[in-house]
């Protein structure tokens, strides 16, 4: 099992994501943003939290134009798996791999706290160790996590069971409480909450661990 974790100059959750993948049994390669190709034989690409290029212009907008993001788009186009967390979710919407956009939090302030989420679908390699309707506690930490999409897109996301997580108590104004969504082929997940920060019992919650183990299960049997 091999995971690649992208490193932009302003990434700050890259190590955290790598640690969580490793704990689930992955061999992890760190991938520099100026590289124009991904390492061979990656099962999944992780796009970490942070402030990729300082979040200037718009969060994730400059990262979406980076050489490595073109390689990630090709990887996803070939049916590869991608997990984008926080800034990673913003990068995925900016590259167009996921629909919609992440706007400034409705409260206009940065919010860091552990929040309750509902698992909206268990039908993906990321969420299959949960059951739909499960409640999990996972930290958020962002200034721009207010998910927005037009009505047609929202209808499609729901119709195709592509909403992965919703907030129990919406912290940022996201439309329909959406916290994370899947791509059409269900192999790209973008989410604002940080499952990698809830994957170690010493730190408190471990509700995020199931995601990394589910992925490990998928690739171990693949």
């Amino acid at each position: 099992m091999r995971a690649g974790v992208l490193v932009f100059p302003g990434s700050n959750g890259d190590r955290d994501l790598a640690v969580a993948f490793r704990a689930a049994g992955f061999d992890v390669k760190m991938v520099w943003h100026k590289d124009s190709s991904l390492p061979d034989n990656l099962d999944i690409v992780g796009i970490p939290g942070g402030f990729s290029y300082g979040d200037y212009l718009r969060c994730g907008a400059i990262a979406a134009q980076s050489p490595i993001c073109r390689a990630v788009a090709d990887h996803a186009g070939r049916g590869g798996y991608v997990l984008g967390v926080c800034n990673g979710f913003q990068v995925l919407t900016e590259t167009g791999l996921l629909p919609g956009a992440l706007l400034r939090n409705s409260g206009l302030k940065y919010v860091c706290r552990t929040v309750g989420l509902q698992v909206a679908t268990a039908a993906s390699a990321f969420t299959e160790n949960y059951s739909a309707g499960d409640t999990v506690e996972i930290p958020i930490a962002h200034h721009d996590g207010n998910y927005f999409a037009d009505d047609d897109t929202l209808a499609r996301l729901h119709g195709e069971d592509r909403v992965a997580f919703t907030y129990l108590d919406n912290p940022n104004g996201s439309v329909q409480d959406i916290a994370g969504i899947l791509s059409e082929n269900r192999r790209v997940l973008g989410m604002m909450p940080h499952p990698e920060r809830a994957a170690d019992p010493v730190l408190g919650g471990t509700d995020g661990k199931a995601m990394f183990h589910a992925l490990a299960g998928t690739f171990a049997t693949a």
Binding site: N12, G13, R15, D16, V19, A20, G49, K109, Y110, V111, C112, R113, P139, A141, H194, E196, R197, A199, D200, V202, L203, G204
Partner: peptide, 17 residues
Amino acid sequence: KQWVYDQYDSMVMADTI
């Protein structure tokens, strides 16, 4: 002081207990 502390990332680096 949650109003204050919620505005700071207290968990990045995934070692905060």
